[in-house]
Simulated scan of single mutants.
Amino acid sequence: MAELPSMQQLKNFIIYGKYGNFTSAANAANITQSAFSAQIKKLEDVVGVRLIARSNRGSHLTKAGELLFQRLEPILDELEGCLDEVRSMDGRAQPLSIGIMLSLGDIHMNRHLAYFQQHYSGASFQVYNLEAQELLQKLRNDELDIISLFRLPSMDIDGYEQVCFCKETIVYYAPHIVVSGGVATADFIASQPLAQYSPQYVMNEYLNQFLSAHTSLPLQTQAWFSTPYAMMNYCQANRIGALLPERFLKALGVVGGWYDVDPPIVLPCYLLYKRSNPRYEAIQVFVDYMKRTYHVPS
C-alpha cells in the first residue's frame, strides 16, 4: 500500500494555497519557514508530483497543486468535522477558537466563556485578543472559528454568518477632568489631552472621523495604546481623557469619572463565523447562549 500524506502535511499545503507564499504560510502555521518547506517537500515526495513551483521570483501552485488545493480543502474540512464529532462522543471535543477585538476588551467574553464551560459539559475554548483586521484575516483563513467585534463602516464582513448580540455605548473617561454639565461634547473632548487607540487600529480611524465630523478643533492626542485597559490606567494616573466602552468600565467596577458623549457613539457588537466551518454545530450552541444572555430575538 502506497504511503499516504499526514494530516499536518495536508493542512500546511492548504495554508500555502491560501497565502501563496512560504513566509506568510509558515507564519500562519506557527512554524519556521524551513520546517514548513520540509513539510511541503515531504508531501510532494509522497504524492509523487510537484505541487508548488519555486523560483528566485517567488513560488506558486502548479496545475496539479491547484487541482489538489481545490479538491482537498472541502474534504479536509469534512474530515476535521468528523474527527471533532467522534471526539465529542468521548467528551473530548476540539476547543473553539474565539477572537476578540482588542479595543472591545475581553473581560465580558471571558466571563461568558467561564459560565458557558460550567454549564455545558465538555466545552473548551482558545481565546485570542487581536486588532479587528487581524481577526477578519484569521477568520477568512480558518484560523479562528468565531470572532467578536464592533461593526465599523470600514469593515467588510459580507459573506459571514452575522449575529448582533448587543450595542455598545462609547463614553468619555476622564477621572481627573471636570466636564461641565456631565456631558462631553466633541468640542470639549478635542480641547483636552486625549489618549487614543494605536493609529493602525480601525477604532482609531473611526473615532477620529467621528470627532472630525462634529468639531473643527484639532485633537490634542498625547498617547496611543493597544488596549482599553492601558488607556484606562493611563487616564487614572494622568490628567487626560479617552473614549472607552461603557460596558467595559462597568465590568471593571469603575463607577465614576466617565461621561456620556454628545452626539452619542453607539456601536453594534457582532459575532461572525462561517457556515462551512466543520465545528458549525458547536458554534451555534455558543451563539445561541450569547443571544439568550443578551435577549436577542431568534
Rank of each mutant, 00 (worst) to 15 (best):
M1A: 12
E3H: 03
L4F: 05
S6R: 11
L10T: 01
F13G: 03
F22M: 13
T23E: 11
T23W: 09
N30S: 10
Q33M: 13
A35D: 06
K41T: 15
V47M: 07
G48K: 11
I52M: 10
A53Q: 14
A53T: 10
R57W: 03
S59D: 10
H60T: 10
G65H: 09
P74R: 13
D77W: 02
C82S: 13
E85P: 02
M89I: 11
L96D: 03
S97M: 09
L104K: 07
L104V: 04
N110F: 00
N110H: 03
F116E: 00
Y120T: 15
S121T: 09
S121Q: 13
S121P: 01
S121A: 13
V127D: 01
E134R: 15
L135M: 08
L136Q: 01
Q137G: 00
L139M: 08
L139P: 01
R140A: 11
E143M: 10
I147S: 04
S148L: 14
L149A: 07
F150G: 00
F150D: 01
D156M: 07
C164L: 06
E168P: 03
V179R: 05
S180Y: 04
F188N: 01
S191M: 05
Q192S: 05
P199R: 14
M203L: 14
N204T: 04
Q209W: 04
F210E: 03
H214N: 12
L219H: 08
Q222C: 12
Y229H: 11
Y234N: 02
A237G: 00
N238S: 14
N238A: 12
L243Q: 03
L244P: 00
L244S: 01
F248W: 12
F248A: 06
K250R: 15
W258I: 00
D262F: 11
P264D: 08
P268D: 14
Y273S: 08
Y273Q: 01
N277A: 15
A282K: 15
A282T: 12
Q284I: 09
V285A: 12
V285D: 08
D288C: 08
